[in-house]
Computed example of a mutant assay.
Amino acid sequence: MGQPRPDSEPSPEARRLARKSRRQDNRRQQILRAAREVLLASGPESFTMEQVARAADASKAALYYYFQAKEEVVAALAIEALRREVEAVSGAVIAAERGIDGLAALIRARVEHYLADPDAFRILYTWAPTLGAAQRLVLAEILPLTAVVSQTLEAKLQRDRKAGLLHPDANPARLSQVAWLTSHGLLSYAMNQPDPERGAWRPLCDEACAALVRGARP
């Protein structure tokens, strides 16, 4: 009889399944990269599964193994964009020393993140909502992911309150929502400028951040 396999060593079947899972994940990502290029080139109205299959060099049967409809493809692209957004914004909020500083950090990080990749903003906030049922998939991800950032910011604002740094009438949850909405308005404005990097959004962003911080202080 052979030596017993250590508990920590995966079985041949487990290794086979892990390899299969990695291949499927890689193939799914290849399809999504091709789909993003097609979507940006054609827009959501002309976007079809046939175009994605050709761009990904895949059969329609292979494509439908991963996604049942074009709405699911766009939803997956939107969720990827959302996860990258949350990663960028949460990093800025966590790095902020105080909750009040986190309000401005959230606004700046979100605006700068999407101005570096405006196509991701369009996919998530403009195109995905136009595709009906796909929006349910996106909303299922938006609420818990953005809640992580909001809860971190709100906890810092509560600490500010205990330290006497927050206005007694200020509501941490509402301040967090105002920061999200302010960043969204600035993004909508900046993206309609001919050259966002040289446009008027920067002084507006500075003023918005300063006004929000002033209003939150005692």
Rank of each mutant, 00 (worst) to 15 (best):
E85L: 05
P118S: 07
A128Q: 14
A216F: 01
G99R: 00
R19E: 12
A75F: 03
E50F: 08
E13V: 15
R36V: 03
E197F: 03
A75Q: 12
R15E: 15
A105Y: 09
A200R: 13
A78F: 11
S150N: 10
M1D: 07
A78T: 07
I123T: 14
A55E: 12
V73H: 02
G132N: 13
V148Q: 06
R5G: 00
A216R: 05
P203A: 04
A211P: 01
R28G: 02
S150F: 00
A134V: 03
L82A: 08
R22G: 01
I100S: 11
I31S: 11
R15P: 06
A78Q: 03
L145W: 01
R136F: 09
H113A: 05
R83G: 09
N171M: 09
P10I: 11
M1N: 07
E37M: 05
L187K: 04
A140G: 15
P4A: 13
E13S: 10
D7L: 14
A211Q: 08
G2D: 08
Y64Q: 14
S59W: 02
F121D: 11
G43L: 10
K70W: 07
H167Q: 05
G91C: 05
L157W: 03
G99A: 03
A14W: 01
I123P: 03
I142C: 00
F121P: 09
L106M: 10
A55P: 08
M1C: 10
E154W: 06
N171Y: 04
L181M: 11
D7K: 12
P218H: 08
V93R: 00
P218K: 07
Q193G: 06
M49T: 15
D119R: 02
A134P: 05
W127H: 03
R83F: 05
L145H: 11
E50G: 15
R161Q: 08
L153I: 05
A109F: 06
A61T: 15
V138F: 01
R15S: 14
A81P: 07
V149I: 02
V148D: 04
L115A: 11
V74I: 15
G102M: 00
V52C: 12
F121L: 08
R27N: 15
A18F: 06
L131G: 12
A96E: 00
E9D: 06
A179D: 10
L204E: 11
R161Y: 06
E50H: 08
L145Y: 02
A211Y: 03
P203Q: 13
K60P: 05
S42Y: 09
R214K: 14
E197Q: 14
F121T: 07
R33G: 09
L106W: 12
L103V: 07
P203Y: 00
S150L: 01
L175P: 02
R83D: 07
T126W: 01
S8E: 14
L82Q: 11
S46T: 11
G132W: 02
S11R: 09
A128V: 11
L204G: 02
G43E: 06
